[in-house]
C-alpha cells in the first residue's frame, strides 16, 4: 500500500514553472530520499505535499487524504521538520512539545506519556524543563524530530535534517531515524545534500528542472553510472595496458601517472588482475561509483557545490529564508 501518491503534479508561478511534472509513489515505512539541485522544485514539491502551497494541476494523496480537498486531515497525518528551526526558543522543551500536542489535538490524558516517550527516543528526557535557547544545534534538531512525532504522524517530512551539524551528530540523527521507523511504523520523506547520507534511503528520487529524472534504490541508481573504477600505478604503463587488453579484453585509459579501467565487479576482478600483472604494478585502488556520480551524471551539477551554495545563501538571506 502506498502512503504517498503523487500524480502529474505541476506548480506554475507567474513567470516560472517550479514543478513541471512530478509523479511518484512512496510505500509504507519507506525511507524515501528526495534529491535535486537548488531551484529544481524540491521544496515546492514538499510544500505542496504538506498543503502549504496549492498545486496548479495534478493531485497528491498523503496518508489517504487528498492534499487540496482535505488539507487538515493531511496535516494531522504528517510531521514536518524544516531546515531552519521552528521551535520557540523562549519556551522549554516540554512546553514546545505540549503546545504542539495541543495544536494537533492530542488527548490531554495521553499527553504526558507521549511527551515522555518521544523525549526518551531522542535522549532529551533530562532536558525537558530546560529553555530551548540553551540547546545546541543537534539537540534542537532532535527536539524538532521528537515534536514532529508527538501526534503519531504516518509520514515524517525531514527537510535537510542534518544540515549544519557535525558528523558525529549527523550519525546520531540517522540512528534516531532508523530507530523510529522500526518503533513508530512511520514513512520518512526527506531531502539531503549529503550523498553519503542518501545511502540510508530505501529509494531515491532525483528531481531536476521540475521533473523526476530518476527514481530507484541507491544501488540501482549507481549501476546507471557504470561499473567500478580501478586505478593502477605502474612504471611501464604501455606494457601494462597491452597485457590488460590481451588478457581481459578491456581498454585501460592512461591519464597522467595512472591507468584507469572500468569493470562490473571490482572486488572479484582485482585478484585475477593482480595475479596477471604481478611485479608490473606498484598499486591498485578500487572506487565504487557514488551517488555523487549519479547526481552529476543526471543533473550535470555537483551536489557538493549546491550544498556550498546553499550555505552561502542561508547566511546571506537568513532573514529572507525564515519568512518563507
Amino acid at each position: 500500500m502506498n502512503i504517498i501518491t503523487v500524480a502529474k503534479l505541476q506548480k506554475k508561478y507567474k513567470s516560472l514553472t517550479a514543478v513541471e511534472d512530478v509523479t511518484l509513489e512512496v510505500g509504507e515505512k519507506e525511507i524515501f530520499g528526495f534529491l535535486g539541485p537548488n531551484g529544481a522544485g524540491k521544496s515546492t514539491t514538499i510544500k505542496i505535499l504538506a498543503t502549504l502551497v496549492k498545486p496548479t494541476s495534478g493531485t497528491a494523496f498523503v496518508g489517504g487524504f487528498e492534499i487540496v480537498r482535505q488539507p487538515h486531515l493531511v496535516r494531522q497525518s504528517i510531521g514536518l521538520v524544516f531546515q531552519e528551526t521552528t521551535l520557540d526558543e523562549r519556551l522549554t522543551a516540554g512546553e514546545n512539545l505540549y503546545f504542539h500536542g495541543m495544536l494537533y489535538n492530542l488527548e490531554r490524558s495521553a499527553m504526558a506519556g507521549r511527551m515522555a516517550e518521544v523525549l526518551a527516543m531522542v535522549e532529551l528526557t533530562d532536558r525537558k524543563n530546560a529553555l530551548v535557547k540553551t540547546f545546541s544545534g543537534g539537540m534542537k534538531r532532535r527536539l524538532e524530530i521528537a515534536r514532529g512525532l508527538i501526534h503519531y504522524p504516518r509520514v515524517l517530512f525531514l527537510d535537510e535534517p542534518t544540515i549544519g551539524l557535525d558528523p558525529q551528530t549527523r550519525n546520531r540523527i540517522w540512528d534516531y531515524i532508523h530507530h523510529l521507523r522500526l518503533r513508530e511504523n512511520i514513512t520518512i520523506f526527506m531531502t539531503t545534500h549529503y550523498m553519503d547520507e542518501a545511502e540510508n534511503c530505501d529509494r531515491i528520487a532525483i528531481i531536476d528542472h521540475g521533473s523526476i529524472v530518476a527514481l530507484d534504490t541507491p544501488a540501482n541508481l549507481k549501476k546507471m553510472v557504470g561499473g567500478d573504477l580501478i586505478t593502477l600505478l605502474a612504471p611501464n604503463r604501455s606494457e601494462v595496458k597491452r597485457i590488460i587488453q590481451e588478457t581481459f579484453g578491456l581498454a585501460a585509459v592512461e591519464s597522467e601517472e595512472q591507468l584507469q579501467l572500468e569493470v562490473e565487479s571490482g572486488e572479484s576482478f582485482i585478484p585475477s588482475l593482480a595475479g596477471r600483472l604481478n611485479g608490473l604494478i606498484s598499486s591498485i585502488s578500487l572506487r565504487k561509483p557514488t551517488l555523487d556520480d549519479v547526481f552529476i551524471k543526471l543533473t550535470g551539477r555537483d551536489i557538493r557545490e549546491e550544498a556550498a551554495d546553499n550555505w552561502g545563501m542561508m547566511r546571506a538571506h537568513m532573514r529572507g529564508r525564515n519568512r518563507k
Partner: peptide, 16 residues
Amino acid sequence: WDREFGFLKEVLVAPV
C-alpha cells in the same frame, strides 16, 4: 518576531 525566528511556520502548518 515568530516569523523572524521560525515559530510562525509551526503554527501555520498545524491542522487548525
